[in-house]
Structures are given as C-alpha cells and as structure tokens.
C-alpha cells in the first residue's frame, strides 16, 4: 500500500499535469459540430500513435545482440508509424472532401 502512495508522491508533478490535460481535452472537444465527429476521431487517432516514441526509446536502448527486443521493437515502430502517417493522411483526405462542399 505504502509503495503505491510513494509512487504517487514521486510523481506529483506528472499527476498534476495529467489532471490539467484531462480537463483540457474535455474543453477542446466539447463544442465540436456533428459533421466533424469522424475527422476528429481520425485525427486524434493519429495523435494516439505518439506511443511510437516508446518503441523508439526501447529500440535505442536495446543491446545489439538482443534480437527479440530489436525485432519486436521494430515491429512496434512499423505499426506505430502506420498509425501516425496513415492516420494524418486519411484525415487530410476526409477534410479535403469537406472543402469541396
């Protein structure tokens, strides 16, 4: 139990930021018109690909003979890049369609 409290105590700054950002996310989205629901979902999906940074850090720290980490980490980077690049590209295509209307 105290270990959990210690963990929270050591991350007070992070937890504060977390709470503020949660509220920020609520506020940013709360007035979005219905037509933008799908493009916004697609755009924020691309942003959730930020998890790729974890995979990059993992591969950078992997020993060069640790093939399991290198290969699985590289697969993670491939999947994350597809999420980021594909997500932004497909969002752009959707929003292009909006413009013509």
């Amino acid at each position: 139990m105290f270990e959990i409290l210690d963990y929270l105590k050591d991350h007070v700054l992070m937890i504060n930021l977390l709470i503020i950002t949660i509220y920020l996310g609520f506020e940013i989205i709360s007035k979005v018109p219905t037509v933008l629901h799908t493009p916004l979902m697609s755009g924020s999906n691309a942003i959730s690909g930020i998890v790729i940074i974890g995979a990059i850090i993992l591969v950078r720290q992997a020993d060069s003979s640790d093939y399991l980490t290198l290969v699985l980490g590289a697969v993670g980077i491939v999947l994350g890049t597809i999420n980021v690049v594909g997500g932004h590209a497909v969002t752009n295509r959707m929003l292009e369609m909006f413009k013509k209307k």
Binding site: T21, I22, Y23, L24, G25, F26, I28, I29, S30, V32, H37, L40, M41, S44, N45, I47, S48, I50
Partner: peptide, 9 residues
C-alpha cells in the same frame, strides 16, 4: 489528450 477528448467525443 487523446484519452480525454476521445472519451468526450
């Protein structure tokens, strides 16, 4: 940001 805005969305 994605988690909270996604939940509201």
């Amino acid at each position: 940001l994605v988690g909270s805005s996604g939940a509201i969305l």
